[in-house]
Design a protein around this nucleic acid. Structure first.
Lengths: 270, 270
DNA sequence: CGACAACTTGAGAATCGTCAAGGAAGGTGG
DNA sequence: CCACCTTCCTTGACGATTCTCAAGTTGTCG
């Protein structure tokens, strides 16, 4: 359990977060300006480094990947859900204490809401409540899908489903200098700009794996070794190409969809 | 796929549903009277018989058990979620078409909401939105728990977790005459009354399985044969007693909790 | 270069899925 | 009341698959 120091801080610049600062596609971008400002009063932005856990239950993920980690009494680790940039996080449950704690699977920045203050905002702003409802519905639906995947699918099928899920996520910038750049990236030559274009255009086929294989394994409920073998299986069938450890090319998307949908049952399946 | 005729009907009595008609513990009971009446205007109550599917996406389960069924392209069935009496059902997802359809795992009665009318009610009544949010949070949390169970647990552990889940559900009346009775059950002798008491008092240890073993299997992601063997395992260790096919006694609740929490790993687990 | 983390590969074994057959419970008709 | 049927569940044997363990490879960083 790597428990690094948690750096809590207001926004470095001192100014409150603007809607324009949100990741693209974030549900929160749909609320009115006044609602947004009300919600963002007195929030805390925390930065988490990979492997770090944090005790918050309500928040908004600005960047990175957060997993909900749980562990069995014998130490088996598991990830019951993943959150990507732009998603609302609400782990509360009224009836019982919340299960599982948020763990950063990559370096991440989170806006942490005070739960009671957030509830007040939800009561005061119907548009915020509508967005929140929509988000929770979507997350519940995604969780049902995931349960279905875990229920009766083989490792290859689960991996294919996970790849499609990752593909729907907003792609984080691939290069670090882009990631860190506040303004223009240093030495933005035309070649690099073209590469950036490539990344954007070929988002359909090139996928940067957002999390470690280890975490993929814990998410799809198999051992890391099995994940490795499943990647090899798909590669040997020319369905994907493994360009780097964390970058794969989806060569045959229809085949991936077919497999994810249950096209690779056990040998003697009924 | 048994597709029986779907009996759509207004309330038999003709009068609108009252809050007092709700199953005990239903979240909807917390909204104000006017909100409730507004939501219940022009709803439809449908009765589903076991095995029957229905195309609704938003509703409220009055009685029975509804499962969200999905099937892989090769025909494997799976249940990605279960709903019990008193729960709100909202399967919509804004981004993509909903996956999985509601299937009755027992005879069930459902109040079906018109989605757009329901959205209007949610916008108009903050207390309704609050209840809905709470319900969706709870369901998402339950789904995360279930994903965790499926992720890395053995069949016996999954079954133990499912038993605990069923135990938290409101117990349906065990005897049919009670279930069908509108007023007093026929021939309510003191002996039968005492039996009813027994059922209520010993709810802690006697559990009526709300769904077939087949469906338990599809829910926890194993084969029916494996469910059967898992039951036997628990019985042979005096942790449960199988009184009838659909009735078991939970003799050692702490042991069940321990197992559900991961106390029964594979033999050579790390 | 060495240290470390992340990932891969191979071999063996436990486990669960598969198949086939049998059993229990409940309803139906004679 | 009994034979018969259907549905649901159980049991046993076997084999494919995935977990486990151990060792090796790759890539990154100081």
């Amino acid at each position: 359990m790597t428990k690094a120091t948690l750096s809590k801080s207001r926004r470095p610049t001192g100014r409150p977060l603007q809607r324009s600062d949100l990741p693209s596609g974030a549900a929160l971008a749909d609320v009115s300006a006044s609602t947004f400002d009300d919600l963002m009063r007195a929030v805390e932005e925390i930065r988490m480094t990979r492997g770090e856990a944090a005790p918050f239950v309500t928040g908004f993920l600005l960047s990175g990947v957060i997993g909900v980690a749980d562990q069995a009494s014998d130490g088996r680790q598991m990830l019951s859900a993943l959150f990507h940039a732009g998603e609302l996080i609400d782990l509360r449950r009224d009836a019982r204490p919340p299960q599982g704690r948020p763990v950063a699977l990559t370096d991440a920045r989170v806006i942490v809401f005070n739960p009671s203050r957030m509830d007040a905002a939800l009561r005061a702003h119907p548009d915020l409540a509508a967005v929140w409802l929509s988000e929770l519905r979507e997350q519940a639906a995604a969780l049902r899908d995931h349960c279905g995947d875990l229920n009766c699918k083989t490792p290859v099928e689960r991996l294919a489903a996970a790849l499609l899920e990752f593909r729907r996520w907003p792609q984080e910038a691939a290069r670090k200098d882009v990631l860190n750049a506040n303004g223009a990236a240093p030495s933005e030559t035309s070649a690099e700009a073209a590469e950036g274009q490539d990344v954007a255009n070929s988002a359909a086929t090139v996928l940067k794996l957002p999390i470690l294989r280890n975490h993929i394994a814990e998410y799809i409920g198999v051992q890391p070794e099995t994940v490795s073998r499943a990647f090899r299986t798909l590669e040997s069938e020319r369905i994907i190409e493994i360009e780097r450890k964390d970058t794969i090319r989806l060569c045959d998307l229809p085949a991936i969809r077919t497999i994810a949908n249950g096209g690779r049952p056990r040998a003697g399946a009924r």
